[in-house]
């Protein structure tokens, strides 16, 4: 995902702000990392450049 997506993303459950942590990034985008919601104490993973914002119970 591109970094500018952070401007519009929020937690899908509580709609609160997310904290981005990047573990892998190339010249185009963030490839791997997490988006953390402090209020829900929940991590949303970014894999293959796609953020997984499914509610925790629906995640694969």
């Amino acid at each position: 995902m591109k970094r500018d997506l952070m401007e519009i993303l929020c937690c899908p459950m509580c709609k609160g702000d997310l904290v981005l942590e990047v573990t892998e990034e190339n010249e185009k985008e963030i490839v791997k990392g997490t988006l953390f919601c402090g209020k829900c104490n929940e991590y949303y993973p970014i894999d293959d450049g796609i953020p997984n914002m499914l509610p925790p119970e629906l995640r694969e």
């Binding site: 995902m1 929020c10 953020p51 914002m53 499914l54």
Partner: peptide, 28 residues
């Protein structure tokens, strides 16, 4: 909610997010 579909959409230039319409991860 389908990762395989999103891979194609991404190739078509869309900024994609895995998620569901019932719980959108976007600000008001």
């Amino acid at each position: 909610p389908s990762r395989n579909m999103l891979k194609l959409a991404k190739k078509r230039g869309i900024k994609v997010i895995l998620g569901e319409g019932e719980n959108l991860p976007f600000k008001d």
